[in-house]
């Protein structure tokens, strides 16, 4: 078994604005099963952060428990990280986010960590619109405990051992939409061309960005009667809106005719350029998105791509009026503004 990946890299590897190659954003060599979709999610994240030229130390990776949640070890080695208690990643992310607004927060979770033990935490972090990118690597199965079906597995599909799933599944994208997420997307780990621009947009989005990534489990959920296998997903995917990510201050060129594309401008000035697929809906209209998701589900299809994005909503920092300065950088004068300020506050309650 190889535990090491050679440090040699392609002599003509592309470099980003920081002069780094995508290899500089790698993590340790993965110990997930060979062919695990989560590794492809990690690779897409590496590519996204590399392309955005974000220094790795300006990112914090947070996760709970599960195959998905051990995945952050395998990307962005130079970033901050916190591997929390099962289902409690949103709380730690909230604390970290409140303490330091200057970092980009990437939460990596799974179907168990989010849709079962962590469902309560998930609901509240969405509701509060914490400024973070929340990724669910969704394989519909508990891989780390040997293949029990997760809450996101569809009713009627069967486990590897042949047991039918009796309960209806939780659709996390719909849930995030209902609870007020301001960026919702769904993707497939086998489609990096779609994942990378979505991840870039999600990272640049200020507010709660949720991406549900169907990420097949090769060991426990890749059989013929699964609805989360590579083959099944590939056959049932319907790409709704094709999104390009146009970074800040780059020349905007488009190969699409007038009226065929639609721009969403994010806070930092970057643009999500949407091209209407055949089954177009309005990604700025929550109801339209919900309708499209439901319609495709009824047809047995999986709608992927950007589902919803509205950068005009205020996030948790705006609502709480938090300080731009990370708490660890505040000095004594700012933390203890003196009797005069205290009097002012006290007078406000009289």
């Amino acid at each position: 078994m190889s535990f090491l990946k050679s440090k040699f890299h392609h002599p003509r590897l592309a470099r980003n604005e920081l002069g780094l190659t995508h290899r500089d954003y790698e993590g340790s060599l993965s110990t997930l099963c060979a062919g695990c979709g989560h590794d492809a999610v990690g690779a897409a994240l590496v590519q996204a952060v590399f392309e955005l030229s974000i220094p790795a130390h300006k990112i914090a990776k947070l996760s709970g428990i599960g195959c998905s949640s051990k995945a952050p070890t395998y990307f962005l080695n130079q970033s901050h990280g916190f591997n929390t208690v099962h289902g409690r990643m949103p709380s730690v992310a909230t604390g970290a986010g409140m303490a330091n607004r200057s970092l980009k927060y990437i939460g990596m979770s799974g179907d168990g960590d989010t849709a079962s033990i962590g469902l309560g935490q998930f609901a509240h972090v969405v509701r509060r619109r914490l400024d973070m990118t929340y990724i669910v690597a969704n394989n519909g199965v508990y891989g780390l405990t040997k293949g029990q079906m997760a809450a996101t597995a569809e009713r009627g599909s069967t486990t590897k051992k042949g047991n039918k799933v009796l309960w209806p599944d939780i659709d996390l994208a719909t849930m995030a939409l209902e609870l007020g997420a301001t960026f919702v997307a769904r993707s497939f780990s086998g489609d990096k061309e779609q994942m990378v621009p979505l991840l870039k947009a999600a990272i640049c989005h200020e507010g709660f960005a949720f991406i549900d990534i169907i990420s097949p489990c090769v060991t426990f959920n890749n059989h013929a009667t699964s609805t989360r296998s590579y083959d099944y997903v590939r056959e049932h995917v319907q790409e709704g809106l094709i999104a390009d990510f146009v970074p800040v201050a780059s020349d905007i060129t488009t190969s699409y005719g007038e009226g065929e594309s639609n721009d969403i401008c994010l806070h930092d000035g970057s643009i999500i350029r949407l091209h209407k697929g055949s089954n177009g809906f309005d990604a700025r209209d929550r109801q339209s998105s919900l309708g499209a998701i439901h319609k495709h589900r009824e047809n047995g299809e999986i709608l992927t791509g950007l589902l919803y994005c509205d950068p005009t909503y205020r996030d948790m920092h705006d609502i709480l009026n938090t300080t731009e300065t990370p708490l660890n950088s505040l000095n004594e004068k700012e933390l203890c503004p003196g009797a005069h300020t205290l009097n002012g506050i006290n007078n406000g309650f009289r």
Binding site: S6, K7, L29, G35, C36, G37, P216, V218, D231
Partner: peptide, 14 residues
């Protein structure tokens, strides 16, 4: 099965 794990792991991006 096109999981593209090989594409991701390849140290030389071959």
């Amino acid at each position: 099965i096109e999981c593209v794990a090989c594409e991701d792991i390849c140290p030389m991006d071959c």
